[in-house]
Design a binder for these strands. Structure first.
Lengths: 338, 338
DNA sequence: CTGTTAGCGCATTCAG
DNA sequence: CTGAATGCGCTAACAG
């Protein structure tokens, strides 16, 4: 019942070599032969064995995707984008999740051996790899590309996080806010990945350019999660003394958390508090959250496309690419009440 | 530079067969030999080629996971659970996303050939497969198990969706509500998958048992998404005549959408409107949403564990399993205002 | 407990 | 344009 290339060859009355060429669209097969082989293969329901072709050709037609976790907005969408272009090209997607529960933190460690000899290229999502890990990876000789953030030693596809954060903060400043809070990542995020720090830098740049003071008590960690945002908001709201009139959140999820907590306390948005995030999370439009939008789906697509081009023989296809971000004004920002 | 089993064998002064046995933990290898082989393999950085071992053994040590999309709460968490147990057992996870944008809808079609000869088992997430597709799958001879909902013709791991919906509705009724609305899936969801219909059935059962009338104008589609929930809520709120005092939402995402819209209109929850969902989405606790909780992460783990046991030789390991759900009372439900 | 011998199913030379 | 032969790197009998 198991149909192999041999069966197709026999029925089509050609050699297995010809079947192989015909099926893969290689040249040097007459149109007539190709058609015959194709129809026979179809009829028999022949599917080449990946193991066998992989062993024989040295190519697995599989791309690995290393992610901190899959159950978060950015990752889910980026994975979806990658999957889409891979699938359309007949490539397989081997998923490696480190099962992190925090935004960027990883629970399990990544070993180069997980990946060795079974993929043609590796995409790394938003993960800080240590120099040794990158070295190991390069050692395998396969193309490595990061998505969503920079990884030292290999090109990446991502937005200019610092610029995005700066622009978001400047939106608040342009609205007239001077007392601006900032929700950053947790210690874990900041250690494991560079993006949080870039966003912090962008915030600080905007503030200092506007001649505004940084208020340490208004710069609190939120772990990039909704519940972290809730906690951070509570912490700021509970502060004695004046409250910020606006908060820039390093992610929409945190901003949404702040919204929930504000509502709970009867703090009106944007009348009493302006809020801006980064991402354009699925929930942001329904919630009316102003944000600096980015598109992980697109970033995944772009990265996967580059990798496929590289594997397709176009050397130099894999290169750094800065993706766009854009301000989406909704209903969570307004000039400060006076 | 490429180190194969032969290299290890030479350096360890044994045959390749012994290396293979030692590395895979098979019996019939003396402890001393095994230790030596292991250390040599380690030293050389040897990793067996998946292609080669797959070809030779007929097993790929890879499990396929077919999902409607990855960028939604249920799927993301279930995938995470599956990945975790697979990875812990040294298995690979091959991801096939159909790229659906709606909750259950699929954008692309699934072909059995995508999966043939490259996986040892297939997990199907919350997707309605046609009888022919199931047949094709069974034809491949690999174990197939569904997660998150029933698929005719193969066992599954999921909650009793009808009972969960009924229990959620009964919570509202027990609180004293009699005017109860219901947010269901969109036409696409209901066609592509059975879960939405099961939840609807549970709602209707609870209502009829309590002797309550179904109000068609209060039973509106929400596509299982936040934005769908916003639209559905608007539709209900805009109705002339009395409003429901409570709404049961077929998913937390829709319930969250209703919350956003209610807040926009100044409708207080739970004072003026009680809300209950199903899922326990990550946002539900921060939002204070009462829900009938389920745990997709766990469901994924259980399913993957069964499949591994089956592949490990324990025939009959893959079987239907009903998972628990539980009411989580938070702050979105209360007795009706009178 | 260990080595020898055959393939696994296909892609690739190299002839023709 | 096509076929025959070779081997990818490993596992699985089978001997010993």
């Amino acid at each position: 019942m198991r149909v192999g290339i041999e069966d197709v060859a026999q029925l089509a009355q050609v050699s297995t070599a010809t079947v192989s060429r015909a099926l893969r669209g290689l040249p040097r097969v007459s149109p007539a032969t190709r058609a015959r082989v194709l129809s026979v293969a179809q009829e028999l329901g022949y599917v080449p064995s990946r193991s066998a072709s992989g062993l024989a050709s040295g190519r697995t037609e599989t791309v690995g995707l290393l992610v901190p976790s899959v159950d978060r907005w950015y990752f889910g969408h980026a994975i979806e984008g990658v999957d889409q272009v891979l699938r359309d090209s007949g490539y397989n997607l081997l998923l490696f999740s480190l099962g992190g529960t925090s935004a960027y933190g990883r629970q399990r460690s990544f070993s180069e051996t997980m990946v060795r000899k079974q993929i043609d290229a590796l995409l790394v999502l938003t993960l800080e790899l240590s120099p040794e890990e990158v070295l190991q990876l390069h050692h395998t000789g396969i193309p490595v590309l990061s998505v969503g953030g920079p990884v030292a030693g290999c090109p990446g596809v991502f937005i200019d996080d610092s610029a995005a954060a700066q622009a978001a903060t400047e939106h608040l400043i342009a609205l007239g806010h001077r007392n601006i809070g900032y929700l950053r990542g947790g210690p874990q995020d900041e250690q494991d990945f560079e993006v949080p720090n870039l966003r912090t830098a962008g915030f600080e740049t905007a503030m200092s350019r506007a001649g505004l003071q940084l208020r340490p008590e208004w710069m609190v960690p939120g772990n990039y999660t909704v519940s972290g945002g809730v906690r951070a908001a509570a912490q700021i709201f509970d502060l004695a003394g004046e409250n910020p009139t606006a908060i820039f959140c390093g992610s929409d999820e945190m901003a949404l958390g702040v919204m929930f907590e504000a509502q709970r306390r009867g703090i009106r948005i944007p009348a009493e508090l302006s809020l801006i995030g980064i991402d354009d999370h699925d929930f942001s439009a329904p919630a009316g959250l102003t944000t600096m939008a980015q598109n992980p789906w697109d970033q995944g697509r772009v990265a996967a496309t580059m990798v496929l081009a590289e594997l397709g023989g176009v050397a130099g296809s894999v290169q750094e690419k800065i993706m766009p971000f854009a301000l989406l004004e909704r209903n969570s920002t307004a000039p400060p009440q006076r």
